[in-house]
């Protein structure tokens, strides 16, 4: 009897772990946007979470009002978010390129509220029921004791694809190398003939496009959509980015996955009310022990 109970415990642990990895994959995709923009523009784009919400609404409207199929709806979401990211950068952040970091941070918070309230104005405050973009059936393993939903599979696979493609893009393309150069030394990058402003815009475009994908995946797994949907996942993905080492792309992946797993296991075994508190406590502990985050590089100034 105890052996069967033990086995059940292991199975339920695996279930929580897998759904934690799925949640973590969404955090990782969002965290990429934070970390890339931070790495290159040295700013925290706190409106990033709300771009996810816009992505969610883009999918919702494409499927419900325009009757598009899920894949097209996600593409619409990517396009809407990419354009939105470029516009936000141009209108709100670019004029502040030489301003203090604090001014940029406050502007980002302003943009965040602006997007939330704009969505409130257009869509109202009541929650919309989101239809999942995933049509894959759940897989059950170990005589049905482990269930992996279609959303989980798609989310994890998409996250892996994004990581691989992004790493190749940065390592192998001229634009990717330019991004690395800009993240290290803007002036020296200019002297190579790199248009730094364009590179920053490109980074915003990529990060926001990823937010469009994240919005679709997030709302598919947690199918209620409000103007505030992006806010908490946005903050948690920011935590994930800092956790992994802000500015580091592998750091965003590891930070995101760990955060998702910690959050899910806390909900399962400790308390679902306390889960967020535990997540943030972990961040505080990591930062106390390693202020640059898990994979963060030490910033050394050579004189």
């Amino acid at each position: 009897m105890t052996r069967i109970a033990g086995r059940e415990k292991v199975m339920s642990f695996l279930n929580y772990l897998i759904s934690g990895l799925s949640l973590g994959s969404v955090y990782a995709i969002i965290a990429l946007g934070y970390t890339m923009v931070y790495g290159i523009a040295k700013m925290l784009n706190f409106a990033h979470g709300d771009v996810i919400m816009v992505g969610g609404f883009a999918v919702y409207m494409s499927m419900n009002a325009l009757g598009l199929n899920p894949i097209l709806a996600v593409i619409v979401s990517i396009i809407v978010c990419t354009v939105l990211g470029i516009v936000i950068e141009k209108v709100a952040y670019k004029p502040l390129r030489k301003a203090t970091p604090l001014a940029v941070l406050i502007t980002a918070i302003g943009v965040s509220y602006f997007l939330q309230n704009l969505a409130l104005l257009i869509f109202g405050s009541d929650a919309k029921l989101f239809t999942s973009v995933v049509n894959i059936k759940a897989i059950s393993l170990a005589n049905g004791q482990i269930t992996i939903t279609g959303e989980t599979i798609v989310t994890i696979v998409v996250c892996i694809i994004i990581m691989v493609v992004l790493s190749l893009f940065i390592k192998k393309t001229k634009a990717g190398q330019a991004m690395l150069a800009v993240s290290e030394d803007k002036e020296a990058a200019e002297l190579m003939g790199i248009n730094v402003n364009k590179t920053i815009s490109l980074t915003f475009a990529i990060g926001s496009g990823l937010a469009g994908i994240a919005g679709a995946l997030l709302c598919s797994a947690y199918p209620t959509l409000t103007p505030y949907t992006g806010s908490m996942p946005g903050i948690k993905a920011f935590v994930a980015a800092v956790f992994g080492g802000i500015g580091s792309i592998p750091g965003a992946l590891i930070g995101g996955l760990l955060l998702g797993v910690i959050e899910n296991l806390s909900k399962a075994y400790i308390s679902s009310q306390m889960a967020d508190a535990i997540v943030f406590s972990v961040l505080i502990i990591v930062l106390l022990v390693k202020p640059t985050g898990l994979l963060g590089k030490k910033i050394s100034e050579k004189v």
């Binding site: 190398q177 690395l180 150069a181 290290e184 030394d185 002036e187 020296a188 002297l191 590089k297 050579k302």
Partner: peptide, 12 residues
């Protein structure tokens, strides 16, 4: 322009 202090991209 070869800048003062070399300014190579250290992590590349």
């Amino acid at each position: 322009h070869v800048p003062e202090g070399r300014r190579v991209f250290a992590q590349l």
